[in-house]
């Protein structure tokens, strides 16, 4: 269960409300709905107005434990090579390291995937797609960020086109450092994630729902042409 009060001090929404006053950025005003105001009339109907909701785990612990076990043992990775980390994903998926031993498999569509592997640096253009893909994934969903670039900018700390810390934009469950991390390291990262899921600690989806405004503010700060709905389910 996520403690709501915990994020009170890190959630800068209150300040944001005061500082951002342009009509373009009034999406936070209404707590319940998302105003996809910038979209044309007919397009607005295509998109959901609902904010992401916190879905608490089932109260009956043994059942939740069982479900978590199932989730941990059947991790489907979204096949989205966002950076150079993707190059080690391939050996990982194939015969030498064979991640399928642990019930993991690549899944080409975000709808069905449950793990998002951020493979290193994330350029602005990709960040937009990452946010979309991440929001399209169905919860519980997890993010594993590999490579140092995703942690603190890595090699591209002074680049104008890459973001430095992916956890400002989507919640990350597990980090693996390295440039490139070897497949074994990534594999250990996934195993760590499995452990976290089984312990019920990997609640990134709920975190995202709770700190939604904070994440959105961060995302909109860097993505200058925000031409998509605020939440893509």
């Amino acid at each position: 269960m996520i403690d709501k009060d915990k994020y009170k001090d890190v959630n800068p929404v209150e300040e944001e409300v005061k500082t951002l006053e342009s009509p373009k950025n009034n999406w936070y005003v209404d707590e319940k709905t998302l105003a996809n105001a910038d979209l044309p009339e007919e397009e607005r109907e295509w998109f959901s107005d609902a904010r992401p909701q916190v879905v608490p785990p089932i109260r009956w612990t043994p059942m939740e434990k069982f479900l978590n076990w199932a989730r941990a043992k059947s991790l489907w990775i979204l096949a989205f090579g966002t950076g150079c980390g993707a190059i080690e994903l391939r050996p990982l998926l194939t015969a030498r390291y064979d991640i399928s031993r642990f019930g993991m498999a690549p899944r080409p569509t975000p709808r069905q995937a449950s793990v998002f592997m951020i493979g290193g640096y994330v350029s602005l253009k990709t960040l937009k797609r990452i946010v979309r893909s991440y929001e399209q994934m169905q919860g519980p969903k997890f993010v594993v960020a590999v490579c140092s670039c995703a942690i603190n900018g890595g090699m591209y700390w002074d680049s104008y086109n890459t973001i430095k810390r992916i956890d400002n934009y989507i919640p990350v469950d597990v980090y693996v450092t390295g440039c490139m991390p070897r497949p074994e390291a990534v594999l250990s990262g996934f195993q760590k994630l499995q452990q976290l899921i089984m312990d019920g600690k990997a609640e990134g989806q709920n975190l995202y729902a709770e700190k939604f405004d904070w994440y959105k503010a961060n995302q909109k700060k860097v993505i200058k042409d925000w031409n998509m709905p605020d939440y893509n389910w």
Binding site: I151, R165, D167, V174, Y175, V176, A202, E203
Partner: peptide, 17 residues
């Protein structure tokens, strides 16, 4: 050695790694 994994959630990564 090449494996260093950290839980990322709910933690400020400024100090990790």
């Amino acid at each position: 050695a090449y494996t260093w994994i950290e839980e990322g959630l709910d933690k400020d990564t400024r100090e990790t790694f």
